[in-house]
């Protein structure tokens, strides 16, 4: 976070084609294609239940896909499976332990992802971005929900990972922190990072939009029910 020079591989490409996913026998989306490369911002829009979160979890490798392929390549080395080491997910749950202070939570996250202990300065810089510096040594259980959400976002500048998967990152953020998040995303893109965000609000970042509603399967055909999961 100290310079704007690209620190990530500029040859990284992530694309999906013909993706389909089912949740509990219901087809969430099908025939979905997307492509992002280093420095891209992709926002996923669509009504509730259109599969925005599902797509993010599919990309992160949590969910199996029904059909289609996700291909990932960096500097010409194509790989069929995704390297989880390059992902960072910010979801609805913030992954914070209430009994720990924010500093302990953030240090643990850093150690978990990198295997080393973060320098105090690094934590301080990451906390400053979302105005959390005064809360660093407070236990997370006394935080408001907005503060918890900002604490969860603090992982983004803390650990260097190229692909950010964000599920409604602006929910519960005030105007100042939305601006801080937009600036952070722009900085990440300038460094060659990739951001895929599911959102209902404009993020204030220029990028491509993937409207999930266009990949809705035709409903009304009861034969669509997948019996395989039963």
């Amino acid at each position: 976070m100290t310079d704007a020079n690209p620190i990530f591989d500029s040859g990284t490409r992530l694309s999906g084609s013909g993706l389909a996913c089912r949740r509990g026998g219901r087809r969430v989306f099908e025939g979905l294609n997307f492509e992002v490369q280093a420095g891209d911002f992709l926002s996923l829009t669509g009504k509730n239940g259109s599969g925005k979160s599902t797509l993010l979890r599919l990309i992160a490798g949590f969910l199996p896909k029904k059909s289609g392929t996700i291909s990932y390549s960096c500097s010409g080395n194509a790989s069929d499976f995704l390297v989880s080491d390059d992902f960072m997910l910010v979801g609805h749950q913030n992954g914070l332990k209430p009994g720990f202070t924010l500093r302990e939570n953030a240090s643990f996250y850093y150690r978990l992802m990198t295997g080393s202990t973060p320098a105090a300065k690094r934590l301080q810089i990451a906390a400053d971005i979302f105005a959390l510096d005064s809360l660093l040594d407070e236990p997370v259980q006394y935080f408001s929900s907005g503060q918890r959400h900002r604490s969860a976002l603090m992982r983004l500048p803390l650990v260097a990972r190229q692909i950010w998967l964000m599920d409604e990152p602006t929910v519960g953020l005030d105007a100042d922190n939305r601006a801080a998040l937009a600036a952070l995303i722009q900085h990440h893109m300038a460094c060659g990072g990739i951001v895929i965000a599911a959102t209902h609000d404009p993020m204030g970042v220029a990028g491509n939009v993937l409207d999930m509603d266009q990949f809705q399967p035709n409903t009304g055909n009861s034969d669509d029910m997948d019996e395989g999961w039963l």
Partner: peptide, 21 residues
């Protein structure tokens, strides 16, 4: 790996971090 800026993390220290937590 795709980002040369940091070394491959050591699995054992990640493991120890989780045990300690």
């Amino acid at each position: 790996m795709s980002h040369p800026s940091h070394a491959q993390p050591s699995i054992s220290s990640v493991f120890t971090a989780l045990v300690r937590r």
